[in-house]
Design a protein around this nucleic acid. Structure first.
Length: 568
RNA sequence: GCGUCCGUAGCUCAAUCGGAUAGAGCAACGGCCUUCUAAGCCGUAGGCUACAGGUUCGAUUCCUGUCGGGCGCGCCA
């Protein structure tokens, strides 16, 4: 739709160029957009404002010239020059009505496009440590990542979903030790919990499972030394099992589970470091002291540093600890190199905001290793606060008020949780109001949208009940002339544009906002116009419109991974 | 202190690559069910877009600074 306007304006400009108004090689860069204000038409272009200088005319005078040179056609009913020199286009009703057959034809695929066709994109998200249950913040990132992946698929990209398992670090040893401690306790060997161990109940669950499988086998293992790898492995697998189950509850699956450990075992880190070394980007040096609270224990020790500051980072980053083992960053760097070498056209990472400090160094590493600057996009998703009874629930592992993602999903349901997580832009902190998300009232946006879909199907049921005849002829869409009907048609035609934009900008929250707007327009229509009219011709046209709305609401909800119920 | 995200109606938030008179929901107030689901609709009220500059035809949007909040800041992941 937008392209048609674009072509019209370009045709006019080319005509003016032939008349000598523009220099032969002057680039026609202008935008065609949907005006915010309804009275400004369906589309508006700023061409006259942007090109006024080139034409040596005032914007309004140029706009008049452009309008006069527009070619004849059917889609635009009228146009006007307005404001400082905008040209507003008002589509004809017949043009607006063409969206209905388009929706009928495309069905569940309406909204898809091919602008991303041929591009292989990887989306890495969640990547929660396998050392405990998932919390709400993980859930938000999971839903955001999943919908970004779905959006990219909708514009034609081939998408691979990946989960990076941090199974190589010290945290996994802490988990193992914690389990071992509980395991000993199960045999009555009470003692003080070792420093830094995880207190959660899930640790005991793992300990019990361990006893069930292995009996007394690990009783002789010391708590002061590193736990046996078999115990660590067992505990991690249990956590991963839970994580998969939690994600499945939210209808999220992955194509690839990538183990950090394999990078250590198969030399990936060494290769990445060697490459930087060869590029002369590694040196022995003293890292800058930490910038925050002064640590009295701070001692400068020479380390192998990566010159990340040459690639936009603030300071150079250490790759190797003083004991010779690699830092987490070194592994992450190798991981991203691995991704790049797998031949994706674009990489997307969805991270929690608490990892924001790592963006620059990972980008720096990737830029250094691949020479590509824009291969990786990192989306930061801000924190989630759980509200119960309007009051924030303080999350604290110690006080025992920790609420897991699973508990919330089981209480509120996947649909409500998914929709709610998407109701804020990623940059905004999110309050998850448990009471509101579960409410079956108009205050709950999930139900508002689902109800719109259910209403469409309620009409279908009524239609059958009453035995109203349906013509085998195509509906006479010219009968759709009410303002509410034209509003709906305009909204429907925006759906593919909305998806495209949400996908390109990786802003999944645009989808629920659109659906709320469409639902509101539908509810207004429903209250103002009778669909199942006596007049069979009018009824047929309205049914066609309503079915198109139902299809688009369903498509939108599917894109969000939310069910579109036929009955509430 | 540094980095980063944010600051928009009483509250929670939108706002197209920089566009025209900044929009919703909730809360408040007033209406609409003998008519396809009132889990709905209509109306009223509510704003110096934190503040001060700058860039330009035009700034909530971009740049600089100030104030306020979230997150992060050596060999944790």
């Amino acid at each position: 739709m937008r392209n048609r306007i674009d072509h019209l304006v370009t045709a006019s400009l080319e005509r003016l160029r032939r008349e000598g108004l523009f220099p032969p090689d002057w680039p026609f860069v202008f935008s065609v957009e949907r005006p915010r204000e309804k009275s400004h038409g369906d589309f508006a272009t700023n061409a006259a404002l942007v090109l006024a200088k080139a034409a040596r005319l005032s914007p309004r005078l140029l706009a008049d010239r452009i309008v006069a040179a527009l070619p004849e056609q059917q889609d635009v009913e009228r146009w006007e020059v307005a404001g400082p020199g905008f040209i507003n286009f008002f589509l004809s009703a017949s043009c607006l009505q063409t969206v209905i057959p388009a929706i009928q034809q495309a069905g569940s695929r309406f909204g898809e496009s091919s602008s991303g066709a041929g591009r292989r994109v990887q989306v890495e998200f969640v990547s929660a440590n396998p050392t405990g249950p998932m919390h709400l913040g993980h859930g938000r990132g999971a839903v955001a990542g999943d919908v970004i992946a779905r959006l990219l698929q909708a514009i034609g990209c081939t998408v691979e979903r990946e989960y990076y398992i941090n199974d190589a670090g010290a945290q996994t040893l802490v988990l193992g030790r914690s389990v071992l401690f509980r395991y000993h306790a199960l045999y009555g060997q009470e003692r003080e919990m070792p420093e830094g161990c995880y207190p959660g109940e899930y640790v005991e669950e793992i300990a019990q499972a361990l006893r069930q499988r292995d009996g007394e086998r690990w009783l002789s293992s010391s708590l002061t030394e590193d736990p046996p790898m078999a115990v660590v492995e067992f505990a991690m697998q249990q956590c991963l099992h839970w994580i998969r189950a939690d994600l499945a509850l939210l209808n999220i699956t992955f194509d690839t589970w990538f183990s950090e450990r394999t990078l250590h075992q198969q030399g990936g880190i060494l290769r990445a470091v060697a490459q930087l070394e060869a590029q002369g980007l590694i040196y022995e040096g003293l890292p800058d002291p930490p910038k925050g609270k002064q640590l009295e224990s701070w001692q400068a020790r020479p380390q192998r540093l990566f010159r990340s500051s040459q690639f936009g980072d603030e300071v150079d980053r250490p790759l190797q600890k003083s004991d010779g083992s690699f830092t987490y960053f070194a592994a992450d760097m190798a991981y991203h190199l691995d991704k790049a070498q797998r031949g994706f056209d674009a990489l997307v990472n969805v991270w929690g905001a608490d990892h924001g400090g790592y963006v620059k160094r990972v980008q720096a590493a990737l830029a250094a290793l691949t020479g590509k600057k824009d291969l990786l996009t990192i989306c930061l998703v801000q924190m989630v606060t759980l509200l119960r009874g309007g009051q924030p629930v303080r999350m604290s592992k110690r006080s025992g008020t920790f609420v897991t993602l699973r508990e919330v999903v089981e209480e509120a349901g996947s649909d409500a949780v998914r929709f709610w997580f998407l109701l804020r832009s990623a940059g905004a902190n999110l309050d998850f109001d448990l009471d509101l998300a579960m409410a079956k009232t108009n205050e709950n946006p999930v139900f508002y949208v689902q109800y719109a879909h259910a209403r469409v199907h309620s009409l279908e049921r009524r239609l059958r009940e009453r035995g109203l005849a349906e013509s085998s002829e195509p509906p006479l869409l010219a009968r759709l002339t009410e303002a509410a009907e034209l509003d709906l048609l305009r909204l429907l035609s925006r759906f593919p544009e909305m998806i495209e934009q949400a996908a390109l900008e990786k802003e999944p929250h645009k989808v629920p906002y659109y659906l709320l707007e469409l639902s509101a327009a539908f509810h207004t229509y429903y209250n103002g116009c009778k669909i199942l009219e006596e007049d069979a011709q009018l009824r047929g046209a309205r049914l066609a419109l309503v079915r198109a709305v139902g299809q688009v609401v369903a498509n939108g909800l599917t894109l969000l991974g939310v069910h579109a119920p036929e009955q509430m």
